[in-house]
């Protein structure tokens, strides 16, 4: 039984701002389904007595002192901008 429907893919594509054709939706739904089916094998493992976690490394409480480090030179930071206006990044108008 399929886990992922084309409707699910359509919704995810919308949220991810991806424009997909109907045939792509169908193809991706099938592929995602296969991936999830594969991962589903993990369900067979017993997790009794295992604490849920969001992180697999045996690490916690890693912080850094509140110290300033040099920032990127603005010219370098702005090389990634699609367009610029002085030192500002220029984008198509958005209104809150």
């Amino acid at each position: 039984m399929a886990i992922v429907s084309t409707q699910d893919v359509r919704q995810v594509a919308l949220l991810a701002r991806l424009a997909l054709h109907d045939d792509e939706l169908k193809k991706l739904a099938a592929q995602l389904d296969e991936i999830l089916e594969y991962v589903r094998q993990l369900q067979a493992v017993s997790t009794d007595g295992v604490e849920p976690t969001s992180h697999v490394l045996p690490l916690a409480d890693v912080t850094r002192p509140d110290q300033r480090l040099p920032s990127l030179p603005p010219e370098e930071a702005l090389t990634l901008a699609p367009a610029r206006h002085g030192h500002l990044v220029k984008v198509p108008k958005v209104i809150d």
């Binding site: 890693v62 480090l69 990127l72 990634l80 030192h87």
Partner: peptide, 30 residues
């Protein structure tokens, strides 16, 4: 480690971490 000083010239207080460039590692300010 970018400065938080208010009123700096635009885009003078950024780095790969706060710009979200690939491969960077954010670490919490204590």
């Amino acid at each position: 480690g970018c400065s938080t000083t208010f009123g700096a010239a635009p885009n003078h207080q950024t780095c790969p971490v706060c710009l979200g460039l690939p491969g960077v590692l954010p670490v919490l300010n204590h």
